[in-house]
Simulated assay, not measured.
Amino acid sequence: MSSKRIAIAGLGEIGRTVARKLAQGLPGLSLAAIATRDREKATAWLDREGISCPLVSLDELPGHADLVVECAPAVILDQICRPMLAAGKQVMVLSASALLPRADLVDLARAHGGQIIVPTGALIGFDAVSAAAEGAIHSVQMVTRKPPRGLAGAPYLVENGISVEGLTSALCVFRGSAREAAAAFPANVNVVAALSLAGIGPDRTTIEIWADPAMTRNCHQIRVEADSASFTMSIENVPSENPRTGRITALSVIAALRKQTSPLQVGT
């Protein structure tokens, strides 16, 4: 049986972790291509890692891969997704915040037989939320607490003159819907965008975001009230070298890729 060809768009912390794992070997999967802005830097990294993989442009991805893992800045999501989906292929999207205003990408996937996959990422319990959504969910509330440096530079903070430097106590910097949070913190709260897509949508899913100097991890708590169950989920994610991203995010991508060809799948 031929391997499913996997490409990676973006070679930051997550992209490198996924590339290493694919190069080491995942059953039925092969690292087919990488698209990245800085080819010189990517070539040097690949050489150091002993990984042989072609570097290609975004519009060349459909000719090299069956599935592309998006690990790139959200602003180029369209450039990654559109060629693949138009070719009837798959894109695994980590920039879930950028998906919320892009219903046209879902329409494109539907029209051409493509598929957008949003992995679990930094959260837990998507199976439970998705199951509850088959019935009636009354509310989904999320509270995110991050070390201040994990929120520094977010557009919402800059535009509203909110400083998280030198905090000595926790500061709530945002309350609102998942849709509003995704626009305000596009690189910081992909988790709530993904949660909203699994459940009752971005306008009914609510979030509080706290900058907390006592935190060393990115912490998320979710409360769901539904006709089938009421449940609370909490997770404390160890940050990667990029303080905005937890280490578990890359591992969730690898787990989702493994499911693509596994003879046994656990979870919906």
Rank of each mutant, 00 (worst) to 15 (best):
V18N: 01
P62D: 01
A187S: 09
C71W: 03
A133C: 04
A184W: 08
G114V: 11
G114S: 10
L257D: 02
A86T: 04
G12K: 11
P54N: 00
V118Y: 04
P62I: 01
G176Q: 11
P155M: 15
T120Y: 02
S234N: 08
R16T: 05
A35C: 09
S139T: 01
I200N: 13
Q221V: 06
V164I: 11
D107P: 00
R16Q: 15
C71I: 04
C53W: 08
A170K: 11
T261F: 15
G201F: 11
I248G: 03
V143S: 14
V140N: 11
G121T: 07
G28P: 07
C219Q: 10
S230Q: 12
D203V: 00
S262V: 02
V18E: 00
I200R: 15
V68E: 05
A184M: 07
W45V: 06
N218M: 12
G63P: 05
N218G: 03
G246E: 05
A154Q: 05
M142A: 14
K21M: 09
V93A: 06
A152L: 08
H220E: 10
E236N: 14
G246F: 04
A111S: 07
A87I: 02
K146C: 13
S2G: 07
R82C: 13
A193Y: 06
D66P: 06
I254H: 09
R175A: 05
Q260Y: 12
R223L: 09
L157A: 12
A178E: 03
M233Q: 13
P186W: 12
A183Y: 14
T168R: 15
L195I: 11
E60R: 02
V253D: 00
A170I: 01
L264V: 10
L67V: 02
I8G: 02
M92G: 05
L195S: 07
S169N: 03
F231A: 13
Q141N: 13
V173L: 08
I200E: 14
I162C: 10
A181M: 11
T43D: 06
A74T: 00
